[in-house]
Amino acid sequence: MVQRKVCLVGDFAVGKTSLFNRFVYNRFSETYQSTIGVRVQRKILKVRDHELALILWDTEGGQDSTTLKESYLKGAAGAVIVCDLTRTGTILHCEEYIHLLRRENPALPLAIAGNKLDLVSPDHAHVTVAHQVAQLFQAPLTLSSANLGVGVEQLFQSLGERLVHAQTTI
């Protein structure tokens, strides 16, 4: 089976692990537990006729991208940049994460997850900012809520499509 390494990055407490748990185990916990180091899990994704084993690396979040350990990103085939729609700073920091990820591979498939949609309305100013950031850096934005399970499958499915597309065009 085709394996692909996908990293989840973003500031602390934006919901990376919640998205990870919702996608892999279909569960959500209200209790916040910060990730130390990295968590790794596998999820089989069906994309058209392809089966893809996503090896997900849920990385430790920090104040910004400077605290992210770059060795975790090596060899990644794709990445999900997660931001918190209730905190503007986490949306603006997406730019730094995009630069960091594209430093080694400018063509790296990326996806931005605007998480915690259940806490803001879809026409909130932060949502508009997130759309602008995504448009500026040509990375698709998916509004998600790990709590409600909204947009999570769609987020990884769209990334999977792009991974398969990148695979077939090699």
Partner: peptide, 26 residues
């Protein structure tokens, strides 16, 4: 990447070899 290239086992009971390989790399 930490992805598994090849796996050999004496017992052939290990089912998560790719996950273990990634965990070791992590």
């Amino acid at each position: 990447s930490g992805l598994l290239i090849q796996h050999l086992s004496a017992s052939a009971t290990l089912t998560d070899a790719d996950l273990i390989a990634s965990m070791l790399a992590a």
